[in-house]
């Protein structure tokens, strides 16, 4: 089912990127901007772009033969331009199934290497975001939920509502303006994270991490609060109180474990949303990661890169859904046993 979804999605992306105006733009980007219509057409048909969409999709998947054009002057253009192979063996199937993800016309590089490198950068960013966001969100949620309606609850809830109402491009802009602009003059952090790709420091990585973490945090915190508040009204908590267990002990030993089941699902389902945040933040802070690659590829209609990017992101989404289902069953004894 997952595979079927992924194939459907990539086909949609494939179809949209292969619409004629997109191809025309691609040809003009690659050739020159004053190409005549015939020149555009021949450029496209030489590279197999004008064939049937299904055939092209099959080629990309690796279930149809790659294109090959012999021009009048004898030069041969082939889909499989792997320079390690001798000329004769280059014909044949070269798609995703064969491990060939295509060639990025925008970056002049193999897509697989490109995506892997960018994913590494984003992985670093996401890892730190998770390290900051999840503990903070859980602490805020548990503190707010343990005494529902108290002053602490109200101030923390206001805080988490405010963070959910602040999209990344707003909080990022505000952070840069406050902490790194010369107009305010604090200049504690850097407004760009370009240098953080090789060497992440406190100064250049704090703002992007904080920007993504804040938006995701509010939602998780509110879910944790709701689940904590519900647990605190349960019978066994009242029993513990009546037995004379101290309040910190009740929270830590009796309530916490049960209150953390629901937020786990939310945290896993938060991943796809984080992906959005990553795209915005990487564009805003000029951090060349996966999201930045998505924007570049989509803006320039770099078909192979865009397909690889969407395959990766779709798998991230579907995988997190799977993990959240499995984890929920594992964490919740009521479901596990029955």
């Amino acid at each position: 089912m997952m595979l079927f979804t992924a194939i459907c999605l990539t086909f949609v992306v494939f179809f949209m990127t292969n619409l004629y105006p997109n191809l025309e733009k691609l040809a003009k980007n690659q050739g020159n901007f004053r190409m005549s219509d015939e020149a555009v057409n021949s450029w496209l048909s030489d590279r197999g772009y004008t064939d049937n969409t299904f055939v092209k999709f099959g080629r990309w998947l690796g279930v149809a033969q790659g294109w090959e054009t012999v021009k009048e002057d004898g030069t041969v253009l082939r889909q499989c331009r792997d320079s390690d192979l001798p000329e004769e063996e280059r014909v044949g199937y070269c798609g995703v199934l064969q491990g060939y993800w295509g060639y990025s016309l925008q970056f002049k590089d193999d897509v697989s290497g490109l995506v892997a490198a960018r994913l590494g950068n984003t992985g670093k960013l996401m890892g730190i975001v998770m390290l900051v966001m999840v503990p903070m969100a859980l602490i805020v949620g548990v503190l707010a939920g343990m005494r529902e309606g108290s002053g602490l609850d109200r101030s923390l809830s206001t805080f988490s509502i405010t963070t959910t109402a602040t999209p990344e491009y707003v909080s990022g802009v505000l952070f840069i303006a406050i902490f790194s602009s010369s107009a305010v003059g604090l200049k504690w952090f850097k407004g760009s994270a370009t240098t953080a790709m090789d060497d992440a420091t406190f100064a250049n990585f704090t703002l992007p991490v904080l920007t993504i973490a804040l938006y995701g945090m509010g939602y998780i915190a509110r879910m944790t609060r709701a689940s904590m508040a519900e647990v605190m009204t349960a019978q066994y908590i009242r029993t513990a109180r009546l037995k004379g267990v101290s309040f910190p002990n009740i929270v830590m030993k009796h309530a916490l474990r049960n209150a953390l089941i629901a937020p786990f699902t939310v945290i896993m389902l938060q991943f796809p949303w984080l992906l959005n945040g990553v795209v915005i933040v990487e564009t805003l802070f000029n951090y060349k990661g996966f999201g930045w690659l998505l924007v570049q590829a989509a803006g320039n209609n770099d078909i192979d890169t865009l397909l690889a990017v969407s395959v990766v992101s779709v798998f991230v989404v579907l995988l997190t859904q799977l993990i959240s289902d499995i984890g929920y069953v594992y964490l919740n004894p009521r479901i596990r046993i029955s």
Binding site: V13, P272, L294, A298, L306, S310, V314
Partner: peptide
């Protein structure tokens, strides 16, 4: 399952 921004890029570009 689409990232929203990818969807926007696919739907909204002038082409």
């Amino acid at each position: 399952a689409f990232p929203v921004i990818l969807l926007f890029y696919l739907l909204v570009t002038p082409e």
